[in-house]
Design a protein around this nucleic acid. Structure first.
Length: 267
DNA sequence: CCCGTGCCCTGGCGGC
DNA sequence: TGCCGCCAGGGCACGG
């Protein structure tokens, strides 16, 4: 599941190859992903650059932006024009001299076209909070105090704090020694600041290692992340805690699997 | 407004 | 070996 570090890795890698390339043609094999009118706008546009906001990629096409969310399994591959289509390739962009193909086994990914002026003024991007690098700790604490949800749920809420998904939320709470089911409103200011600092550290470390390659999600373009070797608790049910050897437990919180050490992480 | 639930989708896995 | 049912999960719609 690509979170901020994985999406940043994709952005950096992909931009190297497709920057200043023109979209000559687009084939869509799953209509729910891109509608016909969107498709026609894309043709003839040049990919000027690729930005990222949280887990969204923003392809700058001059007058328009194409906003892409990879969700769980979305990936881009670069292939020659004549390479046969894989059954999970749902959108093929024919660029100047090769194709950029959107591959997504679960078809959860999304494409949204906006005229440039609207990109950051309209949903989904207009609704997003700031990421851990930009967020104001005092304001975040004020908002967290009024939340009746578990802190894990709050960290996954992109309107509260941007860029964390299930992996990095679990790891942030582990490093902060806070139980994922702890009510957000009971956190101290000190704990809130600790969460932000640890989230920054973890995201930075992961970006430096090319993200996390776990289970379903491997990046494309030959990039294999290495942060999975740094994980403390996520997906480590019944493995010993790296701090105290207590076996890692799992609890479903608001429908999301949450891994934690019951000894290190206080409720 | 706030919060919880179900949905989207399909490969992979456990159980028999 | 084969088949069935269930699970994973980010964001959003919906309902209490």
């Amino acid at each position: 599941m690509p979170e901020l570090p994985e999406v940043e890795t994709v952005r950096r890698t992909l931009e190297n190859f497709v920057k200043n390339k023109r979209i000559r043609h687009v084939d869509v094999f799953y209509e729910k992903m891109i509608s016909n009118d969107v498709q026609s706008v894309l043709i003839g546009k040049t990919i000027e650059k690729i930005d990222r906001l949280g887990k969204y990629l923003i392809f700058n096409l001059g007058s328009h932006d194409l906003i892409v969310h990879l969700r769980m399994e979305g990936r881009f591959f670069l292939k020659p024009y004549d390479e046969p289509r894989d059954k999970h390739e749902h959108v093929i962009f024919y660029l100047d001299d090769f194709t950029m193909r959107y591959h997504d086994t679960r078809k959860f990914g999304t494409f949204d076209l906006r005229i440039k002026e609207d990109t950051y003024k309209t949903p989904p991007l207009s609704l997003l909070a700031k990421d851990p690098f930009e967020i104001d700790a005092n304001l975040f604490y004020e908002r967290i105090k009024r939340k009746n949800q578990a802190i894990k749920t709050v960290l996954l809420d992109q309107k509260m704090i941007l860029g964390l998904g299930n992996i990095y939320a679990d790891e942030t709470l582990f490093r902060s020694k806070i139980h994922p089911a702890k009510k957000a409103s009971t956190l101290t200011k000190k704990q809130t600041k600790l969460i932000i600092e640890n989230a920054k550290d973890i995201l930075r470390e992961s970006i430096a290692l090319g993200g996390t390659t776990i289970r379903t999600y491997t990046s494309s373009l030959g990039v294999t992340g290495r942060f999975q070797h740094s994980l403390g608790v996520h997906q480590k049910l019944n493995e010993p805690c790296p701090n105290c050897q207590t076996l890692i437990e799992k609890q479903v919180i608001n429908g999301r699997s949450s891994f934690y050490c019951k000894t290190c992480q206080k409720r």
